[in-house]
Amino acid sequence: MLDKHPTLANVAPEPGVGKPNPILEADGLKRFFGGLHAVDLEHLEVERGTITSLIGPNGAGKTTLFNLLTGFDRPDAGEWHLNGGPLVGIPSFRIARSGMVRTFQLTRSLARLTVMENMMVATKDHVGESFWGALFGRWRHIEAANEKIALASLERFGLDHMKDEYAGSLSGGQRKLLEMARALMVAPDVIMLDEPMAGVNPALTQSLLHHITNLRDDGKTVIFIEHDMDVVQEISDWVVVMAQGKLIAEGPPEHIASNATVIDAYLGRHHGEVP
């Protein structure tokens, strides 16, 4: 079993609790769809350099929260900060550039770009990506340098032999890996994974978990949505539980596993649905 993150050892397992060195802080985030409170969050902090899992029953608002934090959806109220910088009203692409990158529940590989192009397109602050820069700028050496980084990353994810294939021809599991590798090319501080294990075979799940812990060991902060409690138990430093848009519990995984509120909200709901 992996070591729990030392800085979180003395944090009380209460919803909305403060952390010693938060990278992400959200306050009063609210999002309504009609009369439904999809997200209604009082306070949430995410500790720097940890793996934080976000769990909760279907419709708990996990993906909506991801969308809000990354600028893919606008909250009706509230604010949030990354590295102390406010993100309210910032468009999603700027949030990505400022260091918080997400993946999607349904993988979004750029099908008619090659695997290598998928990686290369993710680099940021590239002079060749502006119109005038593309025409007159000197960007070939940047490309060469980025290609080395991309190739190393593809090797790490076991995709280097596919680098010239169209991304659309990869298998589902390979696309998940590619999407994760691609997100890393943006060089983010925080990487947010929306159900990275969904629809992936068990062998690949182990490899994905391994990659995720590696990310933390490289100093990245990982937030991921997951349904499988075993997976959550195995790699999380901290677990945040949502139900009906609200934060109902947070704490170390072993605490969450034995928390009655969580079992009610999470398992109870599921049991009710089984015919």
Partner: peptide, 20 residues
């Protein structure tokens, strides 16, 4: 790289946004 970004947008706008 400008053209590559264009093609990425053609393939999937949300993915391109998420990559900055």
């Amino acid at each position: 790289p400008w053209g590559r970004a264009m093609r990425a947008i053609r393939e999937d706008e949300d993915a391109a946004l998420s990559l900055g």
